[in-house]
Every structure is written in structure tokens, then in C-alpha cells.
Design a binder for these strands. Structure first.
Length: 274
DNA sequence: TCCCAGGGTGTGG
DNA sequence: CCACACCATGGG
């Protein structure tokens, strides 16, 4: 059992839109990452992680990072709303997800809503992922690129993927051929990594930023979706319309802390706090 | 029936 | 460079 004293609220961390493979259970949540599983819950002022893979989930929940420093650095921006959301949602951590799983998950996310994204990923996993057991129950890993590359468009669409099905199949084939290699991509700077991702069909600026942030743990990323556009207009008095420019505006403002600020703002807007 | 959802592609100006 | 139609799918 891992115990965490501070800066880890599972409800906020899991439901803030960065991850899709989790389910409420008893007091907390079941979290699946790759073929590994954890039961997590908050009690009192602490967070508990029950798993057979403690080193893996210590990394997954980014436990070695100093979130007090991040929030202190964010306060230096002197932007009241940004300071407020960083303190209100200080229990959010940016998870270090499996690269391939984050890659596919955020291709699926385009022009889609979170419940549907969860539903599609769940159907893909149950239908085509490896089954494994944890604490007496069965779960399914996110399907491998090899399996995804061999499915027909009709099989993929049966999970609700719609027009995104070819994006999944074609990118899975490129992973299998080695044309897309996550280890090599991880050696690139964030700017070059985004450029490399943008060459892949189905990945635009927003999805690329999600993959660099949630899959490659690059906090100098700031995904701009419909909610961030709304925040930009309503809370920053923004006038630009091109998403690429809005992205650059926030990156210039928050630099290495962009990804954290983005999650605080995004969740705060969805929760109606701002 | 239309609008929206953690958008992207392709085409035309 | 920008604008815009279109792309599946399901919920409101």
C-alpha cells in the first residue's frame, strides 16, 4: 500500500479529462494503465494506492514531483484566476500514462465528448484487449497496436469510433512497421515532438498537445479545445481566433508550467468554478 | 431538428 | 494565410 500525504485527490485527478480508464468502486476508483491495475482512494487528508505494481504506480501518479513548488511558481504569474484554480484543484496531478495508450486515446478524443471517449476505449479494451485479474475481478488491457492494426474498419467502427477508425488502423500499422517509434520520439524536444506527431493523419495541434502532455509528460504543452477557447475569451479577454495562436499565447505565459495550468483551468471551467 | 462534444482534413479563396 | 464543408456518433 502506498500512502501519499499531499497533492493527490483521485476524484479531481481522474475526472479532469486526462485519462479514461478508471471506474468508481467502493470508496475510490479502479485505475487501469496498460495491463496493470490499482485500487485508489482518499481517506482523511491522505491518498492510498493499493496495487501489486507499486513502482509502476509511483511513477504513474508522478509521486516524486514537487507540486508545492509548481503551485508556488504558478502564483508568480500574478493572475488571480490562475492562482485561485491552482489552489482549488491542487489535488490534480498530471499522470504519466503509457505513451501508446495516450496516443490512441487522444486520437479518439477529437470532436468527441468524454463519456463517449470512455465508452469507445472500454469497448475496444473489452473486445480486443488482454484479460487480466486484480483482487478477484477481471479487467482488460488497452489493445496493442498489433491487434488494432489487424482489425477491419467495420470492427473498429462497431465500438463507436466512426470516421476516426481509419486514423486508428493506419497509425497502428505505422507503429508496427516502426515508422512511429515512441522511444525515438521521446528523445526529441517538445517542439520537434509535436511536429513529428502533426505529420500523422488524425493528429492536429490539440491532439498533439494532449499526447505530449499526457503521454510524454511534457509540461510545456497546452491543448486548446472548445473549453479552453471559452476560457480564453471569457477569463483572459482574448480576441484571437486561431487555435494555434491561442496555444502560443498560453505557452508564452506559463512556459514549463503550461500543462499544469491548463488542467487546473480546464477542470475549473467544466466544474463551473470559473 | 439542430447543437455540441478535450478537432482534423481537404478544398477553395 | 483564412474560411468552410464535411466527417460518425450519441446525448441534450
Amino acid at each position: 500500500m502506498i500512502t501519499v500525504e499531499n497533492y493527490l485527490d483521485f476524484k479531481d485527478t481522474l475526472s479532469c479529462g486526462q485519462v479514461f480508464r478508471y471506474f468508481p468502486k467502493d470508496l475510490g476508483y479502479i485505475v487501469i494503465s496498460g495491463d496493470k491495475c490499482a485500487y485508489v482512494y482518499n481517506k482523511g487528508n491522505k491518498a492510498y494506492i493499493d496495487t501489486d505494481n507499486e513502482p509502476y504506480f509511483e511513477n504513474y501518479f508522478d509521486l516524486s514531483k514537487d507540486y508545492a513548488k509548481i503551485i508556488k511558481d504558478i502564483a508568480l504569474t500574478n493572475i488571480p484566476k490562475v492562482i485561485a484554480v491552482s489552489q482549488k484543484y491542487s489535488g490534480i496531478r498530471i499522470l504519466k500514462q503509457e505513451k501508446e495508450e495516450a496516443f490512441f486515446s487522444f486520437i479518439i478524443s477529437q470532436n468527441n465528448n468524454i463519456p463517449r471517449i470512455k465508452s469507445i476505449i472500454e469497448k475496444l479494451s473489452v473486445n480486443y484487449g488482454k484479460k487480466f485479474d486484480f483482487r478477484g475481478d477481471s479487467y482488460y488491457a488497452f489493445p496493442t497496436a498489433k491487434v488494432l492494426s489487424q482489425l477491419t474498419i467495420e470492427q473498429l467502427q462497431s465500438t463507436g469510433l466512426g470516421y476516426r477508425a481509419p486514423y486508428i488502423k493506419e497509425s497502428a500499422q505505422k507503429i508496427l512497421s516502426g515508422e512511429i517509434d515512441f522511444c525515438n520520439l521521446d528523445k526529441l524536444s517538445t517542439v520537434d515532438l509535436k511536429l513529428a506527431l502533426l505529420k500523422i493523419k488524425g493528429i492536429g495541434d490539440k491532439v498533439a498537445n494532449c499526447i505530449t502532455l499526457f503521454g510524454f509528460n511534457r509540461s510545456d504543452s497546452f491543448p486548446v479545445d472548445t473549453w479552453i477557447e471559452k476560457i480564453y475569451r471569457e477569463d483572459f479577454n482574448g480576441t484571437l481566433s486561431a487555435r494555434a495562436k491561442i496555444n502560443q499565447y498560453f505557452l508564452d505565459l506559463f512556459k514549463e508550467n503550461s500543462g499544469y495550468v491548463q488542467q487546473y483551468l480546464f477542470y475549473a471551467k467544466r466544474e463551473g468554478y470559473i
